[in-house]
Design a binder for these strands. Sequence first.
RNA 1: GGCGCUAUCGUCUAGGGGUUAGGACGUGAGAUUCUCAAUCUUAAAACACGGGUUCGAUUCCCGUUAGCGCUACCA
Length: 498
Amino acid sequence: MSAHDRPSPRVRFAPSPTGFLHVGSARTFIFNWLYARRNHGAMILRLDDTDVERNTDASVQSIFEGLRWLGLAWDEEYKQSERLDLHRAAAQSIFEKGLAYRDFTPAHAAEGESSSAQGAASREGAWLFNPGMRDLPREESDRRAAAGESFALRYRVPRHQDRILQFNDAVYGLQSKPADDVEDFALLRSDGNPTYHLASCVDDADLRISHIIRGQDHLTNTFKHLLIFEGLNAPAPQFAHLPLLVAPDGAKLSKRKHGPVVSVTTYRDAGFLPQAFLNFLCLLGWSPKDDREFLTTDEITAVFTLDNINRSNAVINFSEQDPFDPKAVHLNGEHIRALPVDQLAAAIAPFLAQAGFHPTPEKLAAVTPLIRERIKLLGEAPAAADFFFLDELPAYDPAELIPQISKKESGDAALALRVLTKAREVLAHTPFDHDSLDAALRAAATDLGLKPGPMFQPIRVAVCGRKNAPPLFETMTVLGRDTCLHRIAQAEAKLTTL
RNA sequence: GGCGCUAUCGUCUAGGGGUUAGGACGUGAGAUUCUCAAUCUUAAAACACGGGUUCGAUUCCCGUUAGCGCUACCA
């Protein structure tokens, strides 16, 4: 098959701006983007903003903010609300073909009455349509419309028993359903505005979307969409439905129920790298089928196919204690370690700034390699590196300075003091580079009859203010002699008052 | 209620008529090490249930159950 037989695909991401950018939406966007890139097609962003009641500007901003952070560009952009004329014209055309009818039943009034009123004659399928309205003669319909009576426009779903609707979903396979099981859904609301189904299909047809890749919650709706495309005389695109992302309780993610963890910006603000977040999201419902899990965006693009997508919902694992899926955090740690130091430094800088630290580029470049293996989220950087930037160490328990000599034997304050005093003497004239410090301090330990461990612990606590920190010699090198000597002297003072 | 989709370790997944059912995260143990981390080794941990088909089903078919989705003049 030549390139001419296969026009390049056009895919779209069509969020409705009724909230922030949701992780599930982000994944849908990513899968569309991957498909477009993989197949050299076009990625289209369309804001499906037909629900005037619920749309907000803040939401539009949040969506753009989230997508910008992901760093995946799109090629074309549209706003559904600017295409209303097209939708209404399409509705008119479907109506003229006799494929739709006016339903004058007042909105929200149709609720309970049909079931009891119709009796046995209507089968139990009264929900399918409103028989009185579906069969209303055209003249009467026109007269009532002309008189200003408001109506919704409904699709006249074919009712011959043998009419089967079907399509081949790229993920779920052949889907088919008797048209008889599809209700006469609305195309136009009584205020004249298009419904989601109409607007979406009209735009998909007009924008010549070739592949609709979207959440599985639309799988059943697709039968309606097939009917609309048919009414539009447009070929139906290829469909690919994605398994849903759900919360640990199995329910679909909602802000009200699950809080800010469903928003993309929460991940950004906690210090996820966009490529790590993307890596994680792709692994939910898709797999490269080999045992790789750490993948760059390019690597994913290279092997991404629709038929490697699963059919069952994926749980995104989080809790109050652990707001992020442990696997997402782990992958982020891997991506952090994979990043060149200068890029990591640049990524960390804003998080340090937020904590009030504004190191020089040189110092930042020196500190970054010391913490890169110790953080899994960029947001952990300030806490991991504070002592590099603080003039005065935060208060710590002087007891921390007392070294553990062996598993069961603990030293005392006198020992700690001897260590620190010795260290201060040695450090006063040792060159501040890794190897010199290493040699000098180990020799000092031998002098005191100590193993390296018990020797280094008091120094580490004195210099960093805590027991757990990056390797000692590198740390001291970055801190410099003056700071180290000063902090050791302070520690000695703490010990004498103990 | 109707219609539809789904079902492998706690979670994400690979696999597929005959396998020690593989990997990853997390958890436990160990190694390494100046602490922590990183790294390496290792352990525990799964085919929802019931019927078929078959010499043989976790795998194919049917049913049950469970979960989810749709069933709006929301998207």
